[in-house]
Design a protein around this nucleic acid. Structure first.
Lengths: 129, 129
DNA sequence: CCTTTACCTTCCTGTGACTGGAACCCCTAT
DNA sequence: ATAGGGGTTCCAGTCACAGGAAGGTAAAGG
């Protein structure tokens, strides 16, 4: 399998796949012409990575997850802990965004938004809370 | 005012202030010794920037906001539009994170998290939905 | 006067996870 | 022979800084 097919089937851009090889997440062998020759297992790994990334895991977390996946004697507790930590960091991000959202929504609501210059949004930014 | 005092009073790290100068957000004059000599107006601008950044505006959006702030003949509609667009992008991010959160929470809940190797989280990552 | 200490300066590198582009090779079809 | 659609490498850029080295400067203490 060439990189193009793997890209289509995994949903990852070819550029990303090359990058994942560069940082050692996959190591496809090479054909005689120098092309990467992906095996089914490589595709499988890449699809795994695509899904883990889509859940917001960082590359390093993905590396750990892959390691756990390939370790037949893993403890599911280890996976769960990683997932729980990630869940917590997602919750942090959501909370932070919701804080911004609340303030911004208040300001937007207070701004009449016409052609006059006075604007509570700028006022708040200038003067602070 | 030297950079240290401005850093304390604006809440921004000195590194960040130097960076903001480098990209032209502030242009403090220099003392004879080469030190940046911040005026009250510079501090004011930096505090403005700190608050805008805390609301999640990008640097370029901050630049626009500063421009609007200093333009006495601005229309509040322009500010409001910028804020509304940013609000929408925040909502997008929140929605995306909540999507991740939901999937992840389901998986975490399904994983018993003991010393046995079978794990629905890895299973889902491996097999897809 | 000398030293210490605390600032300040510039410059360079690294971050995360890619993306875009240039320059070039390979394979197939016409 | 040539055109196209793959593939390859390498380099630069993104965003918004942070860390650190090497060195100049200011104020306080001995």
């Amino acid at each position: 399998m060439n990189i193009g097919e793997v890209a289509t089937r995994s949903g990852l851009p070819a550029k990303t796949i090359r990058y994942y090889e560069e940082i050692g997440l996959v190591t496809p062998p090479r054909d005689t012409n120098g092309y990467r020759a992906f095996r089914e297992a490589d595709l499988h790994k890449l699809a795994f990575l695509a899904r883990a990334r889509a859940l917001g895991f960082s590359i390093e977390e993905c590396r750990l997850l892959l390691g756990l996946y390939e370790d037949e004697s893993r403890a599911s507790a280890d996976v769960k802990q990683l997932a729980l930590e990630h869940l917590a960091s997602i919750d942090d991000k959501i909370a932070q965004l919701q804080g911004m959202r609340a303030t911004l929504a208040t300001l937007v609501h207070a701004c009449h938004g016409d052609d006059r210059p006075d604007c509570p949004i700028l006022q708040d930014l200038a003067e602070g809370p």
